[in-house]
Design a binder for these strands. Structure first.
Lengths: 194, 194
DNA sequence: TCCAGTGATGTCATTGACTGACATCACGCT
DNA sequence: AGCGTGATGTCAGTCAATGACATCACTGGA
């Protein structure tokens, strides 16, 4: 069937996302107004706010999916797997849905250029950590181990992601995740005493 | 000498902070306007914005001091101390300037009740992590170990602080920091193989 | 003693994010 | 033909945030 042409062009969300990405990239987040994004997408400002809660949220559409994937990866890990391994599985699942390097880099450049956007990114990561904590608790991991494994896992992801974005794309994201996990183990290892 | 009485009451900053704490506590962050805070402090809205960059910042005044203390603690750690121990010193320094349990709890209740405030808190913690990273790099710790030790340290602090706030004040904050550090070591320990 | 400079504040106008209330209209169903 | 629904448009309003300019107590000289 041919997609019915409604009263309006379909996929307003997608057009808004595209328009926002372009405008934030061209002129920066601060010097872009929501009215401009809406205009470029062919809708009104009011419609923008029906799709996204605020001016920043348009850049973080996929984060619910990411959370679900990580939760599922933890849930699917063998019951015998210790918290770190379940967490590692979640990080690998997350890595598998990150877009290609060029696209991720464009998006990250926009976010890092603006403090409000960095704040939003941090709360999204914190949400992932909470979800991870819950999933680990569901496996019987007690507190504070569950929270720590989750927070630490997100820290590993954050550091790995930054290094992946910053480096010139020879290695893939999972490589940096393994690198960061190794560094974490080294750093937290009980130092040789006396 | 008696403090000269200027054209206006002195200590506008302190009065603004007090007024904001009261109003955010009484009516919540969202249902408080900056005009109301300013009125209660006996100044105008414009003056509020000369002291604090935005409506949230009034709750995070001490965070620069915290950063300085943590940086200094890392710098002062013996050259032989591994990254974790330098980081631990920073966490202990941070714990020493946190106000009493009741006050911290009031403040935290305000922050946790509002997503915007949680965002601001997260970026303050991220700033601490960056400062820690820099201080560790200054000790010769290479990447990604420096970032991971810093991020992990902040994660430990976050978890410990939450538990301290949530529990009924029998133990002090340093106790929860030690508890969380222990849990971290357990969690990241190489699991027994086969 | 007076006066120019300074710093903290007040006043005013404006922009832009966000929201609530209500209108519109193509579509599908009956 | 009529009806309900969902996505959108229109409009008015609130409030955070900022720039421009005015005010005025205080200070350090001339």
């Amino acid at each position: 069937m041919i997609a019915a042409m409604g009263r309006w062009e379909p996929n307003a969300r997608g057009r808004l996302e595209q328009a926002a990405l372009e405008l934030y990239g061209e002129r920066g987040f601060e010097r872009t107004t929501v009215v401009e994004i809406a205009r470029r997408a062919g809708v009104t400002e009011r419609t923008y706010f029906r799709h996204y809660a605020d001016k920043r949220e348009v850049l973080f559409a996929g984060s619910d999916l990411l959370r679900d994937l990580m939760e599922q990866a933890v849930a699917r890990a063998p019951a015998s797997a210790p918290p770190i391994e379940a967490t590692t599985a979640a990080l690998e699942a997350a890595a598998s849905v990150i877009p290609d390097h060029a696209q991720a880099r464009r998006r990250q450049a926009i976010i890092e250029a603006n403090a409000e956007l960095r704040e939003r990114e941090l709360i999204k990561l914190a949400t992932l950590a909470e979800a991870l904590t819950g999933a680990l608790r569901g496996r019987g991991v007690p507190e504070p181990a569950a929270s720590l494994a989750a927070e630490t896992g997100i820290a590993v992801f954050k550091v790995a992601f930054e290094r992946w974005i910053g480096d010139t794309g020879e290695a893939d994201l999972p490589h940096y995740i393994r690198e960061s996990l190794d560094a974490l183990r080294t750093v937290t290892a009980e130092p040789a005493r006396r």
